[in-house]
Simulated scan of single mutants.
Amino acid sequence: MKTHRTAAQWLELLQQRNNFKGTNIEFCQHHNVAITTYYKRKILGNYVHVSEGYFRN
């Protein structure tokens, strides 16, 4: 089953990565996140969606 996370939840999850003692793959498995989604969200983490596109926060 897919888990839908809000932008705030993704931000919190990405911040938790700093304290996780393991690889990105292990982190993703622990939090039930696809590694590709993790990298996508990590890249988009500093951007906010606006109707015309994505802009750096």
Rank of each mutant, 00 (worst) to 15 (best):
M1H: 13
M1G: 15
M1Y: 10
K2M: 01
K2Y: 03
K2R: 10
T3N: 05
T3E: 08
T3M: 02
H4M: 06
R5Y: 14
T6V: 02
T6M: 10
T6Y: 02
T6L: 08
T6S: 15
T6G: 10
A7K: 14
A7V: 12
A8C: 09
A8D: 11
A8N: 07
Q9N: 05
W10I: 07
L11R: 15
L11E: 15
E12C: 14
E12R: 13
L13R: 06
L13V: 05
L14E: 06
L14W: 03
L14K: 07
Q15P: 05
Q15V: 11
Q16E: 14
R17N: 02
R17M: 03
F20I: 11
F20V: 09
F20L: 08
K21Y: 05
G22Y: 05
N24C: 12
N24F: 05
N24Y: 08
I25L: 10
E26F: 00
E26V: 02
F27W: 02
F27R: 03
F27Y: 10
Q29S: 10
H30M: 06
H30F: 08
H31W: 04
H31I: 00
N32G: 04
V33Y: 00
V33E: 00
V33P: 01
V33K: 00
V33F: 01
A34V: 03
I35C: 07
I35D: 05
T36E: 08
T37I: 03
T37S: 10
Y38A: 01
Y38T: 00
Y39R: 14
K40Q: 12
R41V: 01
R41P: 02
K42I: 08
K42M: 12
I43K: 15
I43N: 12
L44N: 09
L44Q: 14
L44Y: 10
L44V: 04
L44R: 14
G45N: 10
G45K: 03
G45A: 13
N46H: 03
Y47G: 01
Y47P: 04
V48C: 06
H49D: 12
V50C: 11
V50H: 09
S51F: 01
S51W: 03
E52I: 03
G53S: 02
G53K: 02
G53R: 00
Y54R: 15
Y54K: 14
Y54L: 13
Y54A: 08
Y54E: 12
Y54V: 05
R56M: 06
R56P: 04
N57M: 05
N57Q: 07
